[in-house]
Design a protein around this nucleic acid. Structure first.
Lengths: 238, 238
DNA sequence: GACTCCGAGTGATCGCGATCACAAGTGAAA
DNA sequence: TTTCACTTGTGATCGCGATCACTCGGAGTC
C-alpha cells in the first residue's frame, strides 16, 4: 500500500514493533483493543505542523514514522528547538494531561505518519485503565527529566563551544562504532543547530571550522565523522 | 506545643488547610487515612538539605512550613536556583515516580517543617488508589510546565535586565496592591538572585542601581517597592 | 570596644559572541 | 541551461556582561 509523500502506510504503529519502551507497549488485551478504537492515523508532509504553541490541546500524537522538531519562540522571533522526536515518541502528552495550551510547536522534519488520540477519549481511557495512568505519570516524569537536562545545559553551560560539543556527543552516544570514530548522518542546517544550542548561525559555522581544524570532527558529504570523542568530552568539562 | 527553631509543630499538614490546590487534598477517607499512616513529620533548621542532587530518591517531602530553594550545580561550581518552594509544595516527586536520582538539591531557606513519605510506601499507595495516580500525573505535568517556563526564560531571554524584570514581575504578580505600587518582602541576597536569573552578583547590584535610577523600584529596608509595573512589563518585551 | 564575616556597591578592563555585510556554494524548479 | 531560494563561509566591528579588585557598612561574637 502506497501513500503520498513516498511513504508506506504502517498498519498499526501503536504496537511495540515501533519501539520497545513505548508508552503504550505491553498493555492488556482489553486496553490495547480500546486504544485501537479511539486512535486514528494520518500521514504528514515535510513541514507539517502537528500542533502549534499556544493552541488548546486537541489530543496526543504518537509518531510512527518520520522525525519532528519541537520548538518554542519568543514574540521577537527568536526560536529554540527543545527536542527532536523520533518514531515511538508521544507528543503533546503534557498539555493533554494538564489541559493547558501546547507549550511547543511540533513540526515534521520529513514526511511521516502519526496516530492521533483525542483528548477526551484518552482521559476517559486513562480513568478506565488505572495501570496506564501510572505509566503516563512515569512518561511525564521522563519528559520532566529531559526538560531539566535542557535547563542545566542552558543555565550552566557557558560557551557555545561547550554546548556544541555536548550536542555532538549526544548524537554519537547512540551510534558508537568499533574503531575510535563515530559516524552520524547530519540532517540539520547550521541554523537549526544554532536554535538547539542557543546561539547564532554564524557561530555554528565557525564552530564547525574550529572543530575541523582541531581534528575533532570531519565531514564526508552529509555524514559527520567524530574523530576524537575524548577531546569533545574534555570540552564538555570536568 | 513548641518545637526547636522557634517553630510551632503543625499537627498534620497533609490536609487541605495548608493549600487548597494541594496534591493530596480532597482524598477519599480511606486514602487520606492510609496516607496518614505512611507519612512521618520532621522539622528542619535553616540551611538543612532535604535531599541533594544525585542522591537516590528516598521519598517525597511535603513542605508544611518554611521556604526551600531548589538548585542544581555544575561541576565547576556554578549554581542555578530553579525554584523557590513554599508550604504545600511536594518536593522530589519526579525522582520518586521515575526512580531516578534527585535532579536538584532542596535546601531550607528558613526553619520549617515537612512530611516525608518513603518511596516504596508512596508507590504502593498509588497502585492501590488509582485516582491519586492521575492526580500525580497532573502534578507532574504542572511541574513540567514550570520547567518549560524556565527553559523559555533561559533560552529566549537575552539580557540580564530582561530576566531581572521578569523575576520582579513574578514576585509582584501574587501581591498586587490597590494603588499603583506593589510591595514585596525581599528575602534573597543579590547572590541568590544572580543564581536565579543566571548572571553574576555584580550585575544584579548594578541592575538594582539602574532600576532605582529609572524609578522602577525602591527599597525601604528589606521591603521592595515596585513603582512602575508597566515599565517593567515593557522591558520584559512585546 | 575591636574583631571578623558577609553582603553590597562600584570602577576598570577585556574578551567573546552577536550583529552586519557580503561572497560563494548547492540544489531544485522552470 | 538559467534562475531562484536557501545554506554556508568569513571578515569587521562593537557592546555587553564577566571578571578582578577594591571599599564600605552592618551584624554578630569574643
Amino acid at each position: 500500500m502506497r501513500a503520498p509523500y513516498g511513504l508506506n502506510i504502517l498498519d498499526n504503529c501503536l504496537t511495540c514493533s515501533v519501539r520497545e519502551e513505548h508508552l503504550f507497549c505491553n498493555l492488556s488485551v482489553h486496553a490495547a483493543q480500546r486504544l485501537n478504537e479511539i486512535k486514528s492515523t494520518a500521514i504528514y508532509p515535510k513541514g507539517a505542523m502537528l500542533f502549534i504553541e499556544g493552541q488548546q490541546p486537541r489530543g496526543v500524537f504518537v509518531l510512527c514514522a518520520g522525525k519532528a522538531k519541537l520548538s518554542t519562540s519568543s514574540r521577537e522571533g527568536k526560536t529554540i528547538i527543545t527536542k527532536l522526536s523520533e518514531a515511538g515518541d508521544v507528543l503533546g502528552l503534557n498539555s493533554v494531561v494538564s489541559n493547558r495550551p501546547y507549550e511547543v510547536t511540533a513540526e515534521m522534519m520529513e514526511p511521516g505518519q502519526a496516530n492521533f488520540i483525542p483528548r477526551d477519549s484518552l482521559l476517559q481511557f486513562l480513568k478506565e485503565y488505572g495501570e496506564v495512568a501510572l505509566r503516563v505519570a512515569e512518561q511525564l516524569s521522563r519528559n520532566y527529566y529531559t526538560a531539566y537536562e535542557e535547563i542545566r545545559t542552558l543555565g550552566l553551560t557557558t560557551s557555545p563551544s561547550e554546548k556544541f560539543a555536548k550536542l555532538l556527543l549526544s548524537w554519537t552516544a547512540k551510534t558508537t562504532q568499533n574503531d575510535g570514530t563515530t559516524q552520524v548522518k547530519l540532517t540539520l542546517t547550521h541554523e537549526e543547530i544554532a536554535e538547539i544550542i542557543g546561539t547564532t548561525r554564524e557561530t555554528v559555522s565557525r564552530l564547525f571550522s574550529d572543530f575541523k581544524k582541531k581534528q575533532l570532527l570531519q565531514l564526508k558529504g552529509s555524514t559527520l565523522v567524530i574523530r576524537n570523542r575524548m577531546a569533545l568530552e574534555k570540552i564538555v568539562q570536568a
